[in-house]
Structure formats: C-alpha cells, structure tokens
C-alpha cells in the first residue's frame, strides 16, 4: 500500500506541470487568506443557517463570501443547512442555544422559521435574512434583508425572453415548496410575451431531472425556451435538449463554470446572476457593523444583489472570478 502511494507520488512529482492545476490554485488561495483580521473587535460568533440541500454550488459561493468577510471582521463563522423547514428551524434553535452573537438565516419557508426567528430577536440576537423571504424579513424582526427580489428577477427574465423572440417557455423548479422559485417563474410569466409553463423536478436526483425535461421537450416540440432556476440544472437541461433533439434555448438563473462555458459556446442563451458572494459577505459585514456601530443598511427595505443578466459578451470578464468560486 505504502509502496503504491510512494510510486504514485513520485510519478506525479516527476510529471509536474509548472502552470495551472491545484498548486496554482493553492497559491492563490494562500495569498487571499493571508490577510489578518482588519479590525480589533472581540471575536464574535455568527451562525448562518440556510435551506440549502447537500452539495449545492450556489450556497458554496454564499459561504465563501461569508467566510472571507468573517476573516476580515475577526468573526467565528459557523454554517449549517437543511432543506426541510422543520429541521432548519431546529438549527436556528441550536444557534440560539449556543448564544451566538448574530444569526443569518434564509427564509425560503418563512412560516416554519417565524417562531424561532422571533425567539432569537427576543433573546437579543441580531438577525439578518438573506436570499429569500424579503417580504417577511421586517415583520419577523430582522435588521435587514440581503438578496434578490425574486419577482423582479423573474420579470427581467420574462423581458429578456421576449426580446429574444421566444414564444413558449418551460420554467424548471427543482425545490418543491420554495416560495422564491415560485416567484421567479411567476415574475417571468408576467412580463413574457409568450406562454410559460412550470415543470417540477426532483433537484437532488440529476438523472430524474434530465429525464423529466427530456420528456417535456419530446411531448411538446413547440417549446423554444427552457429556464432553469439553478446553474447545475442548465447543463442537465442542455443534455436533455440534445437527447430530445429539441431546438429550445436554455437560459438559467445563477452562474458556475459550466454555465460560463455554455454561454461562450452558445449552448446557453443568458444567465441571471444574483451575486451570491455578496449575500454571504454583506450579511456578515452588516452584522459586524451592527454590533460594532449599531449601523443598518437598506432603510428598512431589502438590499438587492440582483438581477444581473450575463450573456456571451460578459463571459470572459467573469471567467477568473468564477474559477475561484466567488461568482
């Protein structure tokens, strides 16, 4: 066993690449992380509790933003997530039990979190909501909300689809029960000149997502646009389109390297970015500002981080940022 490992190691050392690869990425990360806290405030603990499923790219970027802000602000940052409302509420309760100094929470299933967020506020813990739940944030006692207004983002998509001359679109929802996703599709439907249908898929099971989109495209050849609500689903939709022999254009919410590649190679039409890095970074930074200086931002209204429509023309400029998982 040891001998095999040593041999593999020797081989990889001998065949070393002087550019790119993991080593170059490590160097960059080292340089970025070398920054010591820029402030001398006490080491506060902030907890972030989201409705993310396991291994979700989008939330990785949010987390990255939060971690970088935490490093700068001398914050002990703890992250947890669960895609079931009841379990997410439980995690917020856990944070209250730990007497953290600030809570960041996403309100994708607001009713499930109403009581527990109220409890945190009552216990004197400042709460910032991110990503979803803009309309409830204030009522539940949060300092501010940072995110994209899903309805407005959806409307931007509807307008863009119309501008591109599309007539029949399918909106692919990958998290059943997510109010924000419903709002996106509803917003798109509102401003879109053609017809738009919703398609529910099981987001944690990629093969079934592909099969569902494929079946939809085969059943209805008139569909000329597929709108996915998360970056990983765009690639899946593109595969489904090829297999089904459809001519539909694939457009998506959110960015990742594959989406960028898709935009460049005309596999995808456009992407709508809500700048997840900002949602994590700003949430931590705003909590820090509140603890340090009792500052709040947004004047009682949500602080918007999107939508930003990204097309082929922007792809090159963003390539580096996407590679380091901050866009």
């Amino acid at each position: 066993m040891g001998a095999v490992l040593a041999a593999a190691l020797a081989a990889s050392l001998a065949g070393c690449s002087s550019t790119g690869g993991k080593r170059a990425a490590d160097e960059r990360a080292k340089a970025a992380a070398a920054g010591r806290p820029a402030v001398s405030t006490p080491r506060w603990t902030f907890a972030m509790v989201t409705h993310a499923g396991d291994g979700d790219t989008f939330w990785d970027i949010v987390q990255k933003g939060a971690q970088e802000a935490a490093a700068k602000d001398n914050i002990n940052f703890v992250y947890s997530h669960d895609d079931q409302g009841q379990a997410q509420a439980q995690l917020v309760q856990n944070a209250i039990d730990q007497r953290v100094d600030g809570i960041i929470v996403s309100l994708a299933k607001p009713e499930a979190l109403k009581d527990v967020v109220g409890k945190a506020v009552k216990a004197g813990i400042p709460v910032v909501t991110v990503n979803s739940g803009a309309d409830r944030s204030k009522a539940y006692g949060a300092l501010t909300h940072i995110g994209q207004d899903e309805e407005i983002a959806g409307e931007a998509v509807g307008t863009e689809l119309t501008r591109r001359g599309r007539t029949k679109a399918v909106c692919v929802l990958h998290e059943s029960g997510n109010v924000g996703h419903e709002q996106r599709c509803a917003g798109a439907k509102k401003t879109f000149g053609g017809t738009l249908e919703n398609l529910y898929v099981e987001g944690t099971n990629m093969p079934s997502v592909q099969a569902a989109i494929q079946a939809k495209l085969q059943a209805d050849p008139a569909v000329d646009a597929v709108l996915t609500l998360g970056a990983p689903f765009a690639a899946t939709a593109a595969k489904a389109k090829d297999t089904a022999g459809s001519k539909a254009e694939i457009d998506t919410f959110d960015l990742n390297p594959a989406v960028l590649q898709g935009l460049k190679s005309d596999q995808l039409g456009f992407a709508v970015d809500q700048q997840p890095y900002l949602q994590g970074y700003e949430a931590v930074d705003l909590l820090w500002l509140y603890r340090y200086n009792a500052n709040t931002l947004g004047g009682g209204r949500p602080v918007l981080t999107g939508p930003q429509i990204v097309t082929k023309d922007d792809a090159d400029a963003l390539a580096d940022y996407i590679k380091r998982v901050t866009r």
Partner: peptide
C-alpha cells in the same frame, strides 16, 4: 403537530 406549529404545510416535505 407540524401543521399547528407552523400554520402552513409544505407539500414536498
């Protein structure tokens, strides 16, 4: 219990 705790039920849970 879930219904009366949260007042609203998510169908996918």
């Amino acid at each position: 219990h879930i219904l009366f705790s949260y007042d609203v039920v998510q169908s996918g849970e």
